[in-house]
Design a binder for these strands. Structure first.
Length: 659
RNA sequence: GCGCCUGUAGCUCAGAUGGAUAGAGCUACGGACUUCUAAUCCGUGGGUCGGAGGUUCGAAUCCUCUCAGGCGCGCCA
């Protein structure tokens, strides 16, 4: 806000696009500075010092907002001295008045962003890697909504894939009683133990099935049989599979709800097929010549997107071309994805049928696509037809995502191709110690006895991974242990949720998280707990002030002539809120949120601990004799509490009034 | 083989558009609680930003090469 004001004036004066700012090495020089003059020196053929001096004079005669003075230092830096009282006078009452709306950009009517995240195979429990996806997606959605977009969040359910087939086959045939033609599924449902979550049982079962497949090839035939029956959609097994997937999806939704993650729509892959999305897409692609039918070579009999031809790899010759339709006529995942992407933009003439899934803990209705649902026109809301599409998928799927975008481009949907964003993030792996703790043997991890690796990939196939619900429970337990007083259940849950979201958010997208229990269970320092603590502390101060009947009414004459270092620090932090969030909305680098939030909380802690940094004694705000100063400092606390609350909201962390 | 990503303090990581002396947290050591909440704060220690060239007045940041690690290149999803 301070820097934006200066940047606006400078841009006008200099006619350049971006103004870089930084912090001077000595505080005496100024509160912040810019090196624009240095970079201008060459093209203007003037010494940077001279440019800076001239510019400073021009700025001084027409001071930007909140500026007290502008100085110059060699070799040509512009140093800005902030008029802190003026800033306080504008900023604090605005924060207090606007509350949740403070710093929010004006909305952009009609601009809709479609965000897909989570999209976990509905055949087993979620693990912490899936959680990273959900937290990233949910946070981006929150930030974009705040930025003024209308958002639609969807969770894609791949119910037609082999993973579901595997678990169904395992349930029906791996252990007695086996399914027999004509029988009902009562005995099969009876296999689920009462003392274990549904999705946990499937987790183990899936891993066991992968193991059994190698030993017992007859299961392969069974699997093939189950696959066809599910695809046929008429056999009772198809209904059973759908029921199973539905139950798992329910488990997933319950899991992420613990981290305040909700959706607008569940999109079932089977509905993409049933609604004939592909047929339309196929014609479009063929019409544009984007598809090629292979009559020879390794992809003989397939419809492919040409994407680089045949290349030599470590494992021999391979084709880079992407198959969309297999030689047996069936559709690949990428094929479905192209059709689905078209639907998201409203480019398909076809639509799903919808019905209500149920209301969620955030009060919003969750919809699902369904064969027996209603057409979109009959609903009060419309799904899809987005301006921009963000797919939160891990980086390993970069190649197929590229194919999807390329298909759009080839079909002539250039604008939509450019607005298709693959939000790619690195996976979560397990540290050596974590892998050991999970009891993963070397052989199960697929490694030699002497081999040592830094990290281990989680694997559904081998059942190696930290299950999301376990992790949430562990963090909760840890938070309770670490507290110096008994915690209410709800407080522990909130702290755990904040800690987990923070942990999954603070890494940059390119950073591979090597999950380590010690690291992930930390409750001190750079953690979500710190943010909650700072917020709750501010609440406590305000609560106590009210109890003591201290007048919190803002008066502009309460501002001191000189602000202390920690007061300035907090004020500066508060003033950066809007630009910090806006920046995240543009870059989608959500780790910048935790970075800013931590900085803000730190500046508050510093202010709280040392409001008068030079003094020997620090007086608690509510004991201050100077009523003006008391009002000012308590107003700062209040403003912090509001802005921190807004930050917590944006990161999906529930607020606590006291811990 | 080709492509993408990563390499910054003992450990885990930030460092958007190139800017002045590269920052946090954890760990270690030393200090501050009859409290507005010590899950906090203050201090000390810790770095040839993987390496080598180059561009630039100026490079952790841009370019080239190189070393090390991860991932991708399925008629899986």
């Amino acid at each position: 806000m301070i820097r934006e004001g200066v940047a606006r004036v400078l841009k006008e004066l200099l006619n350049i696009e971006e103004i870089p700012f930084n912090v001077p090495p000595q505080q005496e020089l100024g509160d912040f500075s810019s090196a624009v003059c240095l970079s201008m020196a060459k093209q203007r053929r003037q010494s940077p010092m001279k440019i800076a001096q001239e510019l400073a004079e021009r700025l001084k005669s027409k001071l930007p907002p909140y500026m007290k003075d502008i100085g110059v230092s060699p070799p040509g830096y512009l140093n800005f001295i902030v008029d802190w009282p003026a800033l306080a006078q504008d900023l604090i009452p605005r924060i207090l008045q606007e509350g949740e709306l403070f710093g929010k950009p004006v909305s952009q009517p009609g601009k809709k962003v479609f965000i897909e995240h989570t999209s976990v195979n509905p055949n087993k429990a979620m693990h912490i890697g899936h959680l990273r996806n959900s937290v990233l997606g949910d946070t981006v959605a929150r930030v974009l909504k705040w930025s003024g977009f209308s958002t639609e969040v969807c969770n894609y359910i791949d119910d037609t894939g082999l993973q579901v087939v595997d678990v169904v086959t395992a349930l029906l045939y791996l252990a007695p009683p086996s399914f027999t033609e004509g029988s009902d599924f009562k005995a099969i449902w009876g296999k689920f133990p009462a003392d274990q979550p549904f999705d946990y049982f499937c987790w183990d079962l899936y891993a066991r099935f992968q193991n059994e497949l190698e030993k017992n090839p007859s299961l392969l035939e069974k699997r093939e049989e189950v696959l066809h029956k599910i695809e046929g959609e008429i056999h009772p097994i198809a209904g059973f599979a759908k029921e199973l997937a539905t139950k798992i999806v329910q488990s997933h939704l319950e899991t992420v709800a613990q981290l305040s993650i909700f959706y607008d729509l569940l999109n079932w892959e089977s509905d993409i097929i049933a609604r004939g999305f592909w047929e339309t897409t196929f014609e479009l692609l063929k019409g544009k010549g984007a598809l090629r039918f292979e009559t020879e070579g390794p992809n003989e009999g397939c419809w492919v997107v040409p994407f680089g031809g045949i290349v030599e790899t470590a494992e021999g010759m391979k084709s880079l071309d992407k198959i969309l339709v297999r030689s047996n006529g069936s559709l690949t995942y990428t094929g479905k994805d192209v059709a689905y992407q078209l639907w998201k933009f409203g480019l398909l003439k076809k639509d799903f049928l919808y019905k209500r899934w149920g209301s969620q803990a955030n009060g919003e209705m969750l919809w699902t696509t369904a064969k027996e649902g209603e057409p979109g026109e009959k609903l009060s809301k419309s799904f899809g037809h987005a301006e921009m599409v963000i797919n939160v998928i891990d980086t390993r799927q970069g190649y197929p995502q590229q194919v999807v975008v390329e298909c759009l481009r080839q079909m002539g949907f250039k604008k939509e191709a450019n607005k298709s964003i693959h939000m790619a993030y690195e996976v979560v792996n397990l540290s050596q110690q974590s892998a050991r703790l999970l009891g993963a043997s070397r052989s199960r991890l697929g490694m030699e006895e002497t081999e040592e690796k830094k990290s281990y990939a989680m694997s559904g196939r081998s059942g190696t991974g930290v299950k999301a619900k376990d992790f949430i429970q562990m963090v909760k337990q840890k938070v309770i242990e670490k507290a110096d007083h008994p915690l209410k259940e709800s407080v522990a849950s909130t702290l755990a949720s904040a800690a987990i979201r923070y942990y999954l958010l603070k890494f940059t997208l390119e950073s591979q998280i090597v999950f380590d229990f010690d690291e992930a269970l930390k409750t001190t320092g750079d953690t979500g707990v710190y943010l909650e603590y700072a917020h709750a502390r501010a609440c406590s101060i305000l609560r106590k002030a009210k109890e003591q009947k201290i007048d919190l009414q803002w008066r502009k004459d309460c501002i001191p002539k000189q602000l202390t270092e920690t007061e300035r620090g907090l004020l500066d932090g508060l003033s950066k809120f809007s630009s910090a969030v806006s920046k995240t909305g543009k870059t989608l680098r959500v780790s910048q949120l935790t970075e800013y939030a931590f900085d803000l909380a730190t500046s508050f802690s510093n202010f709280y601990e040392r409001p008068d940094p030079g003094a020997d004694v620090q007086t608690p705000f509510i004991h201050l004799r100077d009523q003006e100063l008391q009002t000012f400092r308590l107003s700062l606390v209040w403003a912090f509490q509001k802005v921190m609350g807004n930050m917590l909201n944006l990161m999906g962390m529930p607020m606590l009034e006291r811990i």
